[in-house]
């Protein structure tokens, strides 16, 4: 009997230790599966991230090794480069027009689609199409044709005896015309808002109606707060993208007229890939990075005042 018990005990310990070692090997299995990403992250993200910080303190044209110059690039950018101030201004204006414009449109159309009409799928598809063409150059070319002096938009305005407006030729208007492009591509944000709206519990609307709340009040007190996390998320992602916009301005106006659409992305591109001033361009990229981080940080920090989370994370 006791022998049997002893055997049983050794069996159990053997089993346990083997399952423990299997567990340990399982740990490495997990690491093995994520290893492609891990290598990619270290080599293609983290290493470049650190290097661009280092390059930003160097003079580097890729012909000779980078030469350390301290803060010279930054000092030059802030004190001697009028293009920097201009690009910064233009980019801020662009972000301020494109991002709220796009989100507002997306939100309004999502609300309109959410009232329960028939054929919602068709409308969703139609509004979505422009955004799948997103950064494609074909759409930028199209924009150039639509807003040129003899273009479709001016022809239409002509029918109601307006214009012609110099959409792309006037330094005052060109940036506005370019920021209409991302607004036209509001579909992807709209789809996210629609998904968010579907999550709002019907009982809340019922309750609001029973309490005699008006539609406007219901929107501001029920719909908007429940949608606020989706709005915050969209706002941040769209802002990050908009700060780095390149293709539209590059193809539609090439930065002109008189640098009125010379977005920050174009300024960086010019310094890095025309003049091959890699150190200087890295400094520019770090300034942009810090600006984007600052905006993201502020949005996150202030968001607990205006976003609402269902699961007790309510920040009021």
């Amino acid at each position: 009997m006791s022998k049997q018990a002893a055997t049983a005990t050794t069996m159990t310990t053997k089993l346990m230790s083997s399952s423990r070692s299997r567990k340990r090997s399982r740990q490495y299995v997990g690491l093995l599966y994520i290893s492609p990403w891990l290598i990619g992250f270290l080599v293609l993200t983290l290493f470049p991230f650190i290097m661009s910080f280092y390059y930003s303190f160097t003079d580097y044209s890729m012909i000779k090794a980078p030469a350390f110059v301290g803060l010279a690039n930054y000092i030059d950018i802030f004190t001697k480069n009028p293009d920097f101030a201009n690009s910064l201004k233009v980019t801020f204006l662009y972000v301020l027009m494109a991002v709220p414009g796009k989100l507002l449109f997306a939100l309004l159309m999502a609300l309109a689609l959410n009232i329960g009409i028939r054929g919602i799928g068709v409308f969703r598809t139609i509004y979505y199409i422009p955004s799948i063409l997103g950064g494609s150059i074909a759409v930028s070319v199209l924009w150039r044709f639509l807003f040129t002096r003899e273009g479709l938009v001016n022809t239409l305005l002509g029918y109601v005896s307006l214009g012609p407006v110099d959409w792309l030729g006037s330094p005052k208007l060109a940036l506005f015309t370019i920021s209409l492009l991302p607004i036209w591509e509001f579909g992807s944000s709209m789809v996210l808002f629609l998904a968010g709206l579907k999550q709002v519990p019907k009982e809340l609307y019922e309750a609001a109606r029973v309490d005699g709340a008006s539609r406007v009040r219901t929107f501001f007190r029920v719909t908007l707060p429940l949608l606020s996390p989706v709005i915050l998320f969209n706002l941040i992602m769209q802002m990050i993208n908009a700060f780095q916009q390149f293709t539209a301005a590059f193809v539609i106006t090439g930065g002109g007229p008189v640098k009125s659409t010379n977005l920050y992305g174009l300024l960086m591109y010019e310094n890095a890939f025309h003049y091959f001033k890699m150190g200087y361009a890295s400094a520019l990229s770090w300034i942009l990075f810090i600006i984007i981080m600052a905006f993201t940080f502020v949005l996150f920090r202030t968001s607990d005042r205006w976003t609402h989370y269902e699961d007790g994370g309510d920040g009021r």
Partner: peptide, 17 residues
């Protein structure tokens, strides 16, 4: 976090790499 990392900041060293 890399979802929110602006590509602009790693583009130049990646190119050099």
């Amino acid at each position: 976090a890399t979802l929110m990392l602006p590509d602009a900041v790693i583009m130049i060293p990646r190119y050099i790499l």
